[in-house]
């Protein structure tokens, strides 16, 4: 089963839900973060075509939070500074992407190899990961003309019962602003900060130092308190399977599409 782009977007949305234990977001992380409704930051022209930068997104509206997208060539990571959880993809060997889940507070990592991703039924789309899950979406929306930043375009339209408005940066190949409206509920992701390459390097090299465990080895490490938590409470996967909360209940609907 291949993950459709829409599915990837849903997964980002799924991770966003309150109650997720090991998703990029947790409810607590949002409480302290105030929403910002300013216009998005525009990337400097020098970033045009760069593959070494970061973008900090602010989520406002029905839900609040901060999410950083880090890019270093074939590597793309999503990091929530609020709860210290990150998801780090490496597409250097495109057919066999590697995936690392980062837990900055515990200074731990879980590394996923090809077979691990397959047993979890994770078939990821590189364009979706690299585009903040907007690559396919953009093709489904109407082009409305140039946007407020240089080298930016506005797209708008309905896709799977959700109304989208997208401000797309041609130079970064990423959204600068993405607004969704579903049943009267409005959420907005907005680029609030462009992170310099050295900040990206600093984060990635710090994660590189964290104690790592292969996903395959978690089951044999029930005495490690951190891993025991992983075993007993489960994790949020990029998968239709095994998405449940700390009570073991499947997380209910509330799809964004």
């Amino acid at each position: 089963m291949t993950l459709s782009p829409a599915h990837t977007w849903r997964n980002l949305a799924t991770l966003f839900k309150a109650g997720a234990l090991f998703g990029l977001f947790s409810a607590n992380a949002f409480a302290a973060v105030a929403a910002k409704a300013d216009s998005p930051i525009c990337p400097a022209a020098t970033l045009n075509g760069s593959q070494h930068f970061g973008v900090q997104y602010q989520l406002s509206g029905a839900q609040h939070g901060t999410l950083q997208l880090l890019r270093r060539q074939a590597q793309t990571a999503y990091f929530n500074p609020g709860n210290g959880v990150g998801e780090w993809w490496n597409f250097s060997v495109a057919e066999h992407p590697s995936f690392i889940r980062v837990f900055a507070k515990q200074q731990r990592r879980i590394d996923y190899y090809m077979g691990d991703l397959r047993t979890l039924n994770i078939h990821v789309s590189q364009p979706e990961i690299e585009s903040f899950a907007a690559a396919h979406l953009r093709s489904q929306l109407r082009h409305k003309g140039a946007g407020s930043c240089a080298d930016s375009q506005v797209y708008e339209g309905d896709y799977q019962q959700v109304h989208y408005r997208l401000l797309w940066s041609d130079s970064l190949q990423l959204p600068l602003q993405l607004t969704t409206e579903h049943k009267g509920q409005i959420k907005q992701w907005q680029a609030s900060k462009i992170m310099p390459a050295r900040e990206v390097d600093m984060l990635l090299s710090r994660w590189q130092q964290f104690a790592d465990t292969d996903y395959a080895d978690i089951g044999d490490n029930e005495t490690d308190p951190f891993l025991a938590q992983m075993i007993n409470q489960g994790f949020i996967e990029h998968s239709e399977h095994a998405v449940y909360n700390s009570n073991g209940q499947p997380m209910s609907g509330q799809h964004i599409h």
């Binding site: 489960g234 239709e240 399977h241 095994a242 209940q249 609907g253 799809h255």
Partner: peptide, 24 residues
């Protein structure tokens, strides 16, 4: 194990199990 529940997929409310007719 991790095969408990099937996330957001259609679930029979009596058995709390997914409808495996929909899966390969």
């Amino acid at each position: 194990g991790p095969g408990f529940g099937f996330g957001n997929d259609p679930m029979n409310t009596d058995s709390y199990r997914p409808d495996l007719n929909l899966y390969d």
